[in-house]
Design a protein around this nucleic acid. Sequence first.
DNA 1: AAAACCGGCAACCGCACCACT
DNA 2: CAGTGGTGCGGTTGCCGGTTT
Length: 209
Amino acid sequence: MDKRLDNPEGAEVRKGPWTIEEDFMLVNYIAAHGEGAWDTLARSAGLKRTGKSCRLRWLNYLRPDVRRGNITPEEQVLIMELHAKLGNRWSKIAAHLPGRTDNEIKNFWRTRIQKYIKQDDQTCSTAQSSQHCDSISPSQISTDASISTLASASMNHIADHCSVSPYLTNFHHLEATFPPPNGLPSPEATAESFWGLDDLWPMQMFTDH
DNA sequence: AAAACCGGCAACCGCACCACT
DNA sequence: CAGTGGTGCGGTTGCCGGTTT
């Protein structure tokens, strides 16, 4: 954790999980200057991160329109349908799901859907010696029967597993580091008991640039 | 209570593509 | 056309928290 590497120029490059302070620096800089030119952005913002790392963090986590958790049954079915059509084109699939990122969909597919495919594999391999079970192809999954089987199997389970990223709870610490200005309510005082990105975004306007 | 195991997810890596010179 | 830098994408890894033994 908190791994650091040195690039050829000798400049320190941080790796590993992002800190709240780094998130703030990135959000503030993008709010002021816009996104793009990520390597330059990383340097200008004072972040000891690669441009790629900054881009990934922004796209997958810090963007104001990003939605996290609570993948709805409708979205699940849509993901399965789109995967049947597009295969592992996660960014293309994500483009049909506003607020969802390719990384999130990819992880969702690998951890949730593939589990049920494997389970399906085992049940069908015991019943019959079928090669369909090794890996499911887009054409195989594209049948209505497959989709409905996977959807029904996954929906009941997944609906119970929606969670808020534990990361967001760490925004408690922000209040000490970046106290809200006069007139702005503390997120502590709101119905939510934790800081979220909705809280982070307004706060970027009153931190230094 | 402690250790082992497992699932979920954030982040990194390598490659491909594109635009610019 | 070739070289280079920036960006996007998909695959993979490793950490962490929860569960099971």
